[in-house]
Amino acid sequence: MNNFKAKKVLLEDLGKNNPVFIQVLGICSTLAVTNVLRNTVVMSAGLIFVTALSNLTVSLVRNVMPSRIRMMVETLIIACYVIIVDIVLKAYMPEVSRQLGPYVGLIITNCIIMGRAEAFALSNPPGLSFIDGVASGIGYSYVLLVIAFIRELMGSGSVWGHHVLGDWWTNWSIMVMAPGAFFMLAVFIWIVKGMMFRRQEGSS
């Protein structure tokens, strides 16, 4: 495999092509779990696993798959990996699995996974597709992790369930509720896009 190309894919998915900022895809299922950092980490790990392996599988079967039914095949491949994640979570982390509830299953309809399979895995060799899957998974996850960190810190004064802020801190309960996630993501996009515009102007 071409090393240079792999590196380029990796970097573009993390920055310029980041699914969350630029395409605003797939925020549905995972935004809901960003109120506690631990759940977000588990969810992100599951998502990276599914994206990487479904990209790999789609890429492996891309030449024998009739293009008429490719959406259905892709969905089924993704669903199989999501079932694996769900079963593993139920077996080893029943508590987290209960808190995540339906959102693990909703990884299936996460547009990012489908989008990567369609846009990348269908036209690229398996190894490169795997890297692309990992990269877009990570690019997606780190945004969520930052949001989850801030939400948990401000909303309940803790990180990973441990209290870090003292008694002087008044919890912003809005941060752990639904509007907090919307505002956080909006501010995040604002900052990142603002920085991008500034850099463009600086270079031109």
């Binding site: 605003v24 809005i174 509720m177 639904a178 509007p179 907090g180 996630a181 919307f182 505002f183 993501l185 909006a186 996009i189 604002w190 900052i191 896009k193 603002g194 991008m196 515009f197």
Partner: peptide
């Protein structure tokens, strides 16, 4: 709308305000 906020950003802020209202 501020340039960097146009599109998705402002839509999310509106969604947040609507979520507040629905609360």
């Amino acid at each position: 709308v501020p340039r960097a906020l146009a599109g998705a950003g402002i839509a999310l802020i509106i969604a947040g305000i609507m979520a507040l209202a629905f609360m």
